[in-house]
């Protein structure tokens, strides 16, 4: 059903079909590395991969937090700016009213 099934099956079979070296006396490995070595390597690779994945998670969190902090502060500044601008407008209108009313100026 799935296209990747046959190779997986085959490798699985291949591993399964391989007889354990202890049982066969004149077993000579086809590749340069022994089974134990391969297993050790695989374990190490798994560990390294897990470490890298965990490291990536940590990095994403750290950088995410840093940038979020700066973004939040930027937002805060922007809102403050808007409020100040509104304040200036209110003051300007109040001044215009005072001048139109002929009141004394400070």
């Amino acid at each position: 059903m799935t296209p990747i099934a046959p190779p997986v099956l085959i490798t699985g079979l291949a591993f399964h079909a391989e007889p354990p070296p202890a049982e066969v006396g004149d077993y000579v490995p086809a590749v340069g590395t022994s089974r134990e070595e391969k297993e050790i390597l695989a374990t190490l690779e798994d560990k390294a991969a897990a470490k890298t994945a965990s490291d990536y998670q940590h990095i994403v969190w750290a950088y995410g937090i840093l940038w979020a902090l700066f973004a939040a502060y930027g937002l805060f500044l922007w809102r403050r700016s808007a409020r100040l601008r509104a304040d200036v407008d209110v003051l300007r209108r109040a001044l215009e009213r005072t001048e139109a009313g002929g009141g004394p100026r400070g």
Partner: peptide
């Protein structure tokens, strides 16, 4: 960011003073 914030604060102080002067003049 620091420069923006400092200028905002200075401006806010000046605004407050302007308001006070406006009320005093009224």
């Amino acid at each position: 960011l620091f420069a923006i914030r400092a200028r905002q604060l200075i401006l806010a102080g000046e605004l407050d003073e302007a308001y006070v002067r406006l009320e005093d003049s009224r």
